[in-house]
Amino acid sequence: MKIFLTDAEATLSLGINLGESLTPGSVILLEGDLGAGKTTLVQGIGRGLGIVEPIVSPTFTLINEYTEGRLPLYHLDLYRLEPQEVAALNLESYWEGVEFIPGIVAIEWAERLPYKPDSYLSVSLTYGDEGTRQVELVPFNYDISKVMTVI
Results as ranks from 00 to 15, higher is better:
residue 56 V to D: 00
residue 15 G to V: 05
residue 27 V to T: 10
residue 100 F to W: 13
residue 142 Y to H: 11
residue 20 E to H: 06
residue 81 L to W: 12
residue 135 V to K: 02
residue 127 Y to P: 06
residue 148 M to D: 00
residue 56 V to M: 10
residue 38 K to E: 06
residue 86 V to H: 12
residue 107 I to F: 03
residue 22 L to D: 05
residue 73 L to H: 04
residue 120 Y to D: 02
residue 27 V to Y: 02
residue 116 K to W: 04
residue 103 G to L: 02
residue 138 V to N: 01
residue 76 L to S: 06
residue 40 T to Y: 03
residue 76 L to W: 00
residue 72 P to D: 06
residue 29 L to I: 00
residue 84 Q to E: 15
residue 90 N to T: 06
residue 131 G to L: 11
residue 130 E to Y: 09
residue 124 S to L: 08
residue 142 Y to N: 01
residue 51 I to N: 00
residue 58 P to H: 14
residue 124 S to D: 05
residue 32 G to S: 11
residue 62 L to W: 07
residue 100 F to G: 04
residue 149 T to P: 00
residue 106 A to H: 03
residue 37 G to D: 06
residue 101 I to L: 12
residue 126 T to P: 01
residue 99 E to W: 04
residue 88 A to Q: 15
residue 19 G to H: 03
residue 37 G to H: 07
residue 68 E to W: 01
residue 124 S to T: 12
residue 53 E to R: 00
residue 105 V to Y: 00
residue 48 G to H: 02
residue 125 L to Q: 07
residue 96 E to R: 13
residue 40 T to I: 13
residue 59 T to F: 07
residue 135 V to N: 02
residue 37 G to M: 08
residue 90 N to D: 15
residue 12 L to F: 09
residue 78 L to R: 13
residue 63 I to H: 08
residue 17 N to T: 00
residue 101 I to Q: 12
residue 83 P to S: 11
residue 25 G to H: 08
residue 131 G to A: 09
residue 51 I to G: 01
residue 80 R to A: 12
residue 109 W to D: 10
residue 101 I to K: 13
residue 103 G to Q: 02
residue 133 R to G: 09
residue 115 Y to L: 13
residue 58 P to F: 14
residue 124 S to Y: 04
residue 65 E to I: 12
residue 117 P to R: 07
residue 84 Q to I: 15
residue 45 I to A: 03
residue 143 D to Q: 09
residue 121 L to G: 01
residue 64 N to C: 05
residue 134 Q to D: 10
residue 68 E to F: 05
residue 38 K to A: 09
residue 59 T to M: 11
residue 61 T to V: 15
residue 118 D to F: 10
residue 95 W to A: 10
residue 78 L to W: 13
residue 51 I to L: 04
residue 73 L to K: 07
residue 125 L to P: 04
residue 126 T to M: 11
residue 134 Q to M: 13
residue 86 V to F: 13
residue 106 A to V: 07
residue 92 E to S: 15
residue 89 L to V: 12
residue 78 L to K: 13
residue 89 L to H: 08
residue 97 G to Y: 07
residue 136 E to K: 11
residue 46 G to M: 03
residue 132 T to F: 05
residue 95 W to C: 09
residue 75 H to Q: 06
residue 66 Y to M: 06
residue 56 V to G: 04
residue 29 L to Y: 03
residue 38 K to Y: 08
residue 143 D to P: 04
residue 47 R to C: 01
residue 118 D to W: 04
residue 90 N to H: 14
residue 33 D to A: 15
residue 21 S to L: 06
residue 135 V to I: 11
residue 148 M to I: 00
residue 116 K to D: 02
residue 109 W to R: 12
residue 141 N to E: 13
residue 56 V to W: 05
residue 58 P to C: 14
residue 48 G to Y: 02
residue 27 V to R: 01
residue 51 I to F: 03
residue 126 T to G: 11
residue 78 L to H: 12
residue 57 S to H: 13
residue 109 W to F: 09
residue 138 V to G: 00
residue 38 K to R: 10
residue 12 L to H: 07
